[in-house]
């Protein structure tokens, strides 16, 4: 049962990351924002300012 729970957890995560998120990325508004971040070279996942390119 414990291993089954782990398997279900892994399946849910795989479904989210491999199916749901790639499809969300295709929404025009999300795509536009992703392209804007790419164009400006912004690391939106930065934890600290040293990970933000413009402060280098």
């Amino acid at each position: 049962m414990r291993w089954f729970k782990l398997l279900v957890g892994c399946a849910v995560l795989s479904f989210l990351w491999l199916w749901v998120l790639p499809r969300i990325a295709q929404y025009p508004s999300v795509r536009d924002h992703l392209e804007l971040l790419d164009r400006r070279n912004i690391n939106a996942g930065a934890m600290y300012y040293t990970e933000v390119e413009e402060h280098r």
Binding site: L37, N43, A44, A46, M47, Y48
Partner: peptide, 8 residues
């Protein structure tokens, strides 16, 4: 709160 989010 977060630095990357501010830039975005």
């Amino acid at each position: 709160d977060s630095t990357g989010a501010v830039a975005a």
